[in-house]
């Protein structure tokens, strides 16, 4: 191991981490927005929009992010839609994640037995109140493990951004290996930096999960 070289590469990896985190959280945020919107559309059974959401969810859940990115980055410019690499990353992550988030939220909402909202209404709550005070808290606590898993999955998926020439961690490692052939050093840094990025999310996630379990109903 050449520690001198590793120290030299460190700033490059730090920049790459910053870029990965920036695109990562923007993408995750977009995914949450799209996911919540789709889940609401499907839960309220809005006509037409519901079909659009269903088609979108199936399309993006059943294709790899890499293929989606290639489509956004290389194919769309051919019909006159040019998107910057960074926006491609955010969009790709948001569209992929949105489909997953929507499914998780929807199954959380669906898992609440109808008797819950019926009981709430027979206690004199309005539909809105029943949703806000009875359904939503339970649905959220059921969806959280899935949502956290999705966030980790999305942050992991950022590793494919190197293919559309975004200088993320993967790109930096590949580039440095190509130039200096210090394979082990670069791969070690790569693994360490991914750990720095994802370990806190994973630990925080399991803490939140444990905390929210109290909101669950039943034995």
């Amino acid at each position: 191991m050449d520690f001198e070289a590793m120290r030299e590469y460190l700033p490059l990896f730090k920049d790459a981490l910053a870029l990965t985190v920036r695109i990562g959280w923007q993408g995750v945020l977009l995914a949450f927005l799209i996911g919540i919107a789709c889940a609401i559309i499907q839960h309220m059974r809005l006509p037409v929009l519901r079909t659009v959401a269903a088609v979108y969810i199936e399309l993006f859940r059943n294709t790899p992010l890499l293929v989606q990115l290639f489509f956004l980055y290389f194919a769309l410019p051919k019909i006159g839609l040019r998107i910057s690499a960074e926006l491609c990353g955010v969009l790709g992550l948001g569209l992929l994640g949105g489909a997953y988030m929507a499914e998780t939220i929807r199954s959380g909402l669906e898992s609440i037995a109808p008797i819950q909202s019926e009981s709430a209404q027979s206690l004199g709550m309005t539909g809105m109140q029943a949703f806000r005070y009875v359904i939503l808290p339970q649905a959220v606590s059921r969806s959280v493990p899935g949502l956290i898993a999705n966030v980790i999955f999305l942050l992991k998926e950022t590793s494919v951004f190197s293919t559309v020439s975004l200088m993320d961690l993967m790109f930096t490692a590949k580039d440095l290996i190509g130039m200096y052939a210090k394979t082990m050093e670069c791969l070690t840094l790569l693994v360490v930096f991914y750990l720095i990025m994802l370990l806190p999310v994973s630990v925080l996630g399991s803490l939140v999960e444990r905390r929210l379990r109290h909101a669950e109903f039943g034995p």
Binding site: I152, M170, T183, L187, V191, Y194
Partner: peptide
Amino acid sequence: RIMPQMVLLFVVYFG
């Protein structure tokens, strides 16, 4: 769960 598959591929194939 934490390591991207791409990183694992690189570690195995190049590392």
